[in-house]
């Protein structure tokens, strides 16, 4: 074909057919940070195993990750949508607290589960919608708009009650107390809910027009608009999804702790963001995977578990997560800089 010259695998000197590695890189270069997260997870496990003399890598430890951090996983899924569009959602921690309180209060007042649970999801969705509209139609910075959402959620949580509300509703308690066993592996309904959320998110992001539009917006909002994509509604929807996930996380956390507590989830939004970034999603948007965010949550959970096992100061948790975050952001910058250098 006459045009072979233009289609050479660009900027690589080797002639002839591109190797398998080159093809893979040119197709899936964006996955590198996520692979790095997997590598770090593996290293953490090996490190834990060595430190704790063979007491770490066992089904229970791994099962516990999902049992203990189901709520964080759901938050990270919602956050991934928002960050992929190039935004940020700081409200999720306090929205989770608010919806937890709302559900606990409704149940305590005698409402049935089928009203309380949808009300929690709806509460989260409405706050997400509010943030999305501020961002999209009033041109407010996502940081500021979701900061408003953060204060709003926390305030609403305290309005519901200043004190913790116990939840004894069997259906909610069941979510966390049921242990389904498969050999030595254990999973709770909360863990299943979290995994299903991940699966739905992965499907939506990769195989629907809506999902691809999310990526397009993160790549370049201007280009997406010129391509005739529905930028406005998609961006708002990303925040609604994040809010709904925060509502769901509120349910999972309530089930986990058997209570709603208005001070729950202070700073959890930052844990969720850290997990998403460690999982390889670019803060500037357009690149990343929801499965990466899951790995990010597991990395976060594993570090915390190791520190608990060692009986070390919890302060180390923050230092290690902070260092990892820094490392990943530098790696991402390098990747972006390389991509721009080629343009």
């Amino acid at each position: 074909m006459a045009a072979m010259t233009t289609a050479r695998p660009t900027s690589r000197p080797s002639e002839g057919r591109p190797s398998v590695v080159q093809t893979f890189l040119s197709r899936h270069g964006g996955m590198m940070p996520t692979f790095a997260a997997v590598a770090i997870l593996v290293l953490l496990f090996i490190g834990g195993e060595i430190f704790l003399r063979g007491d770490f890598i066992k089904p229970l430890t791994i099962s516990n990750l999902l049992i203990n951090y189901a709520y964080l996983l759901v938050l990270a899924v919602g956050m991934t949508f928002v960050i992929l569009t190039g935004g940020i959602d700081l409200s999720v921690g306090s929205v989770m607290a608010f919806t937890g309180m709302l559900g606990a209060k409704l149940l305590a007042d005698g409402s049935p589960v089928w009203i309380a649970v949808p009300a929690m999801l709806l509460g989260g969705a409405v706050i997400g919608l509010f943030i999305g509209i501020l961002v999209q139609y009033f041109g407010v910075q996502p940081f500021i708009a979701s900061l408003a959402g953060l204060f709003l959620g926390r305030g609403l949580a305290f309005i519901v009650s200043l004190n913790s509300i116990k939840v004894e509703e069997p259906a909610v308690v069941w979510l966390q107390s049921t242990r389904m066993k498969l050999g030595d592996w254990v999973i709770t309904p909360t863990g299943i809910i979290a995994l299903v959320t991940v699966a739905i998110a992965a499907f939506v992001l990769h195989l629907t027009r809506f999902g691809r539009t999310i990526y397009a917006i993160g790549g370049s909002e201007q280009s997406a608009r010129l391509m005739g994509l529905k930028v406005g509604r998609t961006k708002v929807a990303a925040y609604v999804i994040s809010g709904t996930c925060a509502g769901l996380a509120g349910l999972l956390l309530t089930a986990y702790s058997n209570a709603g507590y208005p001070r729950n989830g202070i700073g959890t939004e930052l844990d969720a963001i850290a997990a998403v970034v460690i999982g390889g999603t670019l803060l500037t948007g357009g690149r990343g995977y929801v499965l990466g965010s899951m790995i990010g949550v597991f990395v976060y959970g594993t570090i915390k578990t190791i520190i608990n096992f060692m009986g070390a100061e919890q302060a180390w948790m923050q230092i290690i997560v902070g260092s990892l975050l820094l490392l990943f952001i530098v790696v991402q910058r390098a990747i972006v800089a390389r991509a721009e250098g080629r343009r």
């Binding site: 397009a216 790549g219 370049s220 357009g286």
Partner: peptide, 17 residues
């Protein structure tokens, strides 16, 4: 005005995949 973070095929068909 295209999207460097997506595949060539997607850039051709985005919006009418």
């Amino acid at each position: 005005e295209l999207l460097p973070n997506l595949s060539v095929a997607e850039n051709v068909f985005l919006g009418r995949e």
